[in-house]
Design a protein around this nucleic acid. Structure first.
Lengths: 193, 193, 193, 193
DNA sequence: AATGAATGAGACTTCATTCAT
DNA sequence: TATGAATGAAGTCTCATTCAT
């Protein structure tokens, strides 16, 4: 097993354990046990439980980007917004606590600053979408691309967390929530419904 | 010192310690020390560190409600939205990590369900605002009041966290972010800018 | 069991364990086990293994002082020197490694400075002896009391350590060593043999 | 790099690390790091951390012998005693903790017995000096050469440790201490001051 | 002979929780 | 009700030692 393998295994195992137990109750002991490596080996790669957070965050953002690239069609902006909503909702459902955990985990460490760097590619992806929409004159041409991208991501993520994490909504309610969110965003962007 | 005093002191002290140390590193020892009570006394009021969370959440939501009631004018919907943004941004700045911590803290316990109950008054406040706006025909009459209220709260809170917590923006950038958020919401609600 | 009892027990147990195992191999686990207290209790009294050192040093110096007060006669200076030699040799034999350990233990910590304070009463005891001898004109009247006291203690202690610790001399050799040491000191002090 | 080079480097590095950290906190990791060799390589030369001690002791005794041979004049015994004091004080100042560490380090191992062997050449050097002094009738002809040599070495070393290690005396005080020690030894040996 | 990643035993340390006062 | 010393379980982390390369 190579060095890189070991590190990957730790990250993957940490994702599992954090998801299941939460940051508080997650232990390095359990992470290494699940990763199938020795206790001391953990410390060759990470200095503490929370030091794994940035690596996990990167994995998560990559999953979102992958999802966006795979699932978001090249069609009209309305369809694209709808696809983005579904991608983020699906990932949030799959990884439930993890996203929230990441925020908290990072804020509890010296790595808060990393957050922006890690999320940058995602924001850029949305910014590109907005710029194209503005170029095609299908969305409000006066909006600030940078902040709007952040607002959109925050809005969708918080809605998804609401739906799956706090409300623990039924499938039907989730659909309703998504639909409302869709109209909300479409209007906010000045696109035609 | 009465029972209620003691309990209040524990909650306040817990807010301080959680804010400063995060959930992970906060200890009951420090909470009781700051509260000026004995170790054992804590357990007369709360069963564990995380059991204080719902009480803290309630305090926070009350602060938001207080802020809304005090700061949000009776004027046009646009002005009200603007006021709401400022109230939530200000509280987020003051209590920085605390909101996030609350989410995480609650999700790590049996109290997740409480979240909705605690936030209910806040959502109702916004829902009332929306209903009035619809009645006055100043906002989109077709939107779903319940989900829209949640979406609005989520959007503003996530933007505030972005601004103060992750980006650690300068005053100017925050203002820009707030302005963009304002237009975003106004449009989303179908109100005239 | 009172607070003081607990602390005393830790110190006594630490003396035993350090003597038996040396600083390196002594563990807090074993100290508490022998003291019959819980692991965590140790930390209520001392912050680390080495932090017990000054307390042990004090105990040792007190033992020496006790011995001097009890065993050293009020007779002629020659007899007194002889008695001092025996007291220090006896204690060194009983506590073998401990004295050396103390030096090392203290130098490995922030407590080096304490050494002088702890040894002060012993030096004073010897200084008093010297001053009396000078007053009675039985020893060299020109010697510096302060440094000579230190030199005497150092000379006797190092000889005792030589005898018992490094050379591990037989009884006869020890007697010979002591006798030679006696003449050495008598002459150094300018007393008549 | 030859075998001998490697071994020398380990010993030198161990001296540095032991001096800086003390036996307790010195680690093989740091010794090899400073020596510029791999972890495993250490074990090709020494079986443990403490097994380096005898080698270090030898280095130290050689330094003392070198110093004596170089610095101690062929003049009158008084001058020679004075030179010896300076040599041992200087080395003690340079290597501060190391001498004490050696004692302790050796006593914590199976190598205690080695101590006498290692120190033998030093004692012989002093014994030779004493025998010459006796032959020349400049010192007490009745003293036991063997024990007196040990006592002298112990007296000077303990005084030097007092001065530099525990008291951390200023230059002036050290000179005073040395002067007193000089008269002390001269008188003890029955030489004329 | 040399390497250094990996190991895992075990020491250290913390801290929630208890309970006699 | 309130206290806080004592507990000891459990987690963190280090580091000597091994072994495949």
């Amino acid at each position: 097993m190579s060095r890189i393998d070991k590190k990957e295994r730790i990250i993957q195992s940490a994702i599992d354990v954090f998801s299941e137990k939460g940051i508080e109750k997650a232990t390095i002991s359990e992470i290494v046990k699940k990763a199938g490596i020795a206790q001391g080996t953990f410390y060759l790669y990470f200095s503490s439980k929370l030091a794994v957070m940035p690596a996990i965050a990167e994995v998560m953002v990559n999953k979102i980007l992958e999802g966006l690239n795979k699932k978001v069609s090249g069609g009209p902006i309305q369809q694209q917004i709808n696809d983005i909503i579904h991608v983020i909702f699906d990932l949030t459902e799959t990884y439930k606590e993890l996203t929230k955990l990441l925020y908290t985990g990072l804020t509890q460490t010296q790595y808060v600053g990393n957050w922006e760097i890690i999320y940058a590619p995602l924001y850029e992806w949305i910014e590109e979408l907005l710029r194209n929409g503005m170029k095609d004159q299908v969305i409000d041409s006066e909006l600030n691309v940078k902040y709007t991208a952040k607002i959109i991501v925050g809005t969708i993520e918080s809605a998804a967390e609401q739906a799956y994490l706090y409300d623990q909504q039924e499938t039907e309610a989730v659909k309703e929530h998504q639909k409302e969110l869709y109209y909300f965003l479409i209007k906010a962007l000045g696109a035609h419904t």
